[in-house]
């Protein structure tokens, strides 16, 4: 059988983030408005495989997905050691802005999920003029810990097994089994302590309190979409966030914490109107 080639191009590139050399992997497809997509904690850019293959989006958008340092096919930075990874708000912002500057993208749309859905709020507060629009998937202003995340990195527990087990439950029981399995598999492939290190941002450092009120939707349009089965960033929390900003939110049916990866078909029905509105 002849191989059905996908329209995705994979790239490696070297650039500095906060003065430290990094080797980063990214994938892209399509032409038009740059749409930079941010994956969830402990996973990688493969979560956006359906978006990178969606002909309707690729006609108008240049979809670009990078693996964060330590994730997927991106390397750890120079002089790294196992067990010391902790994502901070500052370093997360730096890697996104360095990547955008490095590719010389002008006024991109940035869409992030989970930790990505949180960081777009920080981008909206700090650099609204830099973006054409920001899209938050599974966005919440803050998250109080509800389970002991030390289980995610212990030498007496297989990290891939436990991270996969956590990710599995965050998906909707109605999502297609093959997409759920692939989404979980990405988590099973993460490096030791990386998911936990990302959650330092998600549950502690990146929490936003009253600063949410600084977000001005007139400077940069913000769109928030959240899956109904997400118990990490619940639709109620996204709604509270949207109310504070003064915008609407979309509650997505039959979807959990990883809409673009666990149920791409249903997710794209919600995303298309948003991208058409931005365009």
């Amino acid at each position: 059988m002849k191989i059905e080639k996908e329209p995705i191009t994979g790239n490696y590139g070297k650039f500095e983030i906060d003065g430290v050399k990094h080797r980063i992997y990214w994938e892209e497809a399509g032409e038009g408005i740059p749409l930079v997509c941010l994956h969830t904690a402990g996973s990688d850019g493969r979560q956006y495989r359906a978006l990178l293959n969606d002909k309707r989006i690729l006609k108008k958008y240049r979809v670009i997905v990078f693996d964060m340092p330590w994730h997927g096919k991106s390397s750890p930075p120079e002089n790294s050691q196992v067990g010391h990874y902790k994502l901070s708000t500052e370093s997360y912002i730096s890697q996104i802005m360095s990547f955008i500057d490095g590719l010389e993208l002008v006024k991109p749309v940035v869409m992030g999920c989970s930790i990505g859905g949180r960081i777009i709020l920080h981008l909206a507060i700090n650099f609204p003029e830099k973006f054409k629009a920001l899209i938050g998937l599974q966005s919440a202003g803050h998250l109080d810990p509800y389970y002991d995340i030390s289980w995610l990195h212990r030498q007496d527990v297989h990290g891939g097994e436990v991270c996969g087990g956590i990710a599995y439950g965050l998906m909707a029981p109605t999502s297609p089994e093959n997409d759920k399995f692939e989404t979980m598999w990405h988590y099973m492939q993460g490096g030791p302590g990386i998911f936990k290190g990302d959650l330092f941002f998600y549950k502690f450092d990146g929490n936003i309190g009253t600063e949410i009120k600084k977000i001005d939707n007139s400077k940069c349009p913000i769109f928030l979409l959240t899956g109904e089965y997400d118990y990490s960033a619940t639709p109620e929390e996204t709604r509270s966030l949207a109310d504070t900003i003064g915008i609407e939110m979309v509650k997505m049916k039959n979807v959990g914490h990883f809409p673009m990866s666990e149920n791409p078909e249903d997710f794209l029905k919600y995303l298309h109107p948003v991208l058409e509105k931005i365009n």
């Binding site: 389970y147 599995y168 439950g169 965050l170 109904e228 089965y229 118990y231």
Partner: peptide, 8 residues
């Protein structure tokens, strides 16, 4: 939602 998983 919320009853679908023990962590939920």
């Amino acid at each position: 939602p919320g009853s679908h998983d023990i962590i939920a």
